[in-house]
C-alpha cells in the first residue's frame, strides 16, 4: 500500500494539485454564474408578472433534474441546439451553474419574502430614504438570513463538480481516475482524492457556518442549525 502511495500519489502530486486548481476554478466560475442567474430568475419571478411562469418552469427544471443528467444534456444537446458551449469546460460550468441557480433563486426568494414588511414601513415613516433603507436595513438582514443556504450551495457545487470529469475536464477526479487506469492500484490514490475532497468541502461548510452564526448572534437573529 505504501509503495503504491509513492508511485500513484507522491509521484503525481503536481498533476493532482493541478487537477485541484481546475476543480477550484470551475467551481468558482460556476458559482458566480449561479448567483447571477439565480438572482436574475428570482427578480423575474417576484417582480415581472408576465415572465413569472417561465421563471417558475426554469427553477423547477433546474431543481428537479439530477446534475449528471443536466451535465450530459448541456454537453451533447446544447452545442447543436443553441450553438454553445463549444468546450467541455464551458459545458461543465454551465451545467453546474444551472443546477445551483435554481436552488439559489428559491433561497433568494424566501429571504426577500421573509423580510418583515413592518420594518420597511417604520423606516419610511421615520423619513429614511429608500436607497438607505435598502442598503442599511433590508440588505444586511436579508443577506445574513440567506448566508448559510448560499454557502451550503457552494459546497454542493464542489461536490457536483466531481462529475465534470465524465466529460473529460481534467479536474482532481479525472486525474485520480486516470492514475487508477495507469497503475491499476486504486487504494492510495482514490483514498487520497476522497480525503482531499472531504477536506475542501468540510472546510467550506464549517467556516461558513461559524461566520454565519457569529454574524447572526451579533445582529440578534435566531441561530439555526
Amino acid at each position: 500500500m505504501f509503495t503504491s502511495f509513492d508511485r500513484t500519489v507522491l509521484a503525481n502530486s503536481a498533476l493532482l494539485l493541478n487537477g485541484l486548481s481546475i476543480t477550484a476554478y470551475t467551481c468558482a466560475i460556476a458559482f458566480l454564474l449561479a448567483v447571477f442567474l439565480g438572482l436574475a430568475t428570482c427578480m423575474l419571478r417576484l417582480y415581472v408578472a408576465a415572465l413569472r411562469p417561465l421563471a417558475i418552469a426554469y427553477i423547477e427544471f433546474c431543481r428537479a433534474t439530477p446534475i449528471f443528467v443536466q451535465l450530459l444534456w448541456v454537453n451533447y444537446v446544447w452545442p447543436t441546439l443553441l450553438g454553445f458551449p463549444r468546450t467541455a469546460e464551458g459545458a461543465g460550468i454551465i451545467a453546474l451553474a444551472l443546477q445551483s441557480s435554481g436552488y439559489l433563486a428559491e433561497t433568494f426568494r424566501s429571504g426577500i419574502q421573509g423580510f418583515p414588511r413592518g420594518q420597511y414601513e417604520a423606516a419610511l415613516a421615520l423619513g429614511i430614504s429608500r436607497p438607505t433603507i435598502a442598503l442599511r436595513i433590508v440588505a444586511p438582514q436579508v443577506l445574513l438570513m440567506m448566508a448559510p443556504a448560499v454557502v451550503n450551495q457552494m459546497a454542493v457545487v464542489v461536490k457536483s463538480s466531481t462529475l465534470v470529469s465524465v466529460i473529460a475536464i481534467p479536474d482532481l477526479m479525472y486525474e485520480a481516475l486516470r492514475i487508477v487506469d495507469q497503475w491499476l492500484e486504486p487504494t492510495a490514490i482514490l483514498t487520497t482524492a476522497a480525503l482531499l475532497y472531504f477536506l475542501v468541502i468540510f472546510t467550506i461548510s464549517t467556516c461558513a457556518e461559524r461566520i454565519a452564526t457569529r454574524f447572526r448572534t451579533r445582529f440578534g437573529l435566531p441561530v439555526t442549525g
Binding site: 463538480s161 477526479m173 487504494t187 482514490l190 476522497a194 472531504f198
Partner: peptide, 23 residues
C-alpha cells in the same frame, strides 16, 4: 456523519467499487 455528508457521492461510488474489493 460529517465524513459522509461532506464527501462527493461520485468519489464514494468509485471508492467502494475499486478499493473495497482490494481491501
Amino acid at each position: 456523519a460529517e465524513f459522509f455528508r461532506n464527501t462527493p457521492e461520485y468519489i464514494l461510488l468509485v471508492w467502494v467499487y475499486y478499493v473495497v474489493p482490494v481491501l
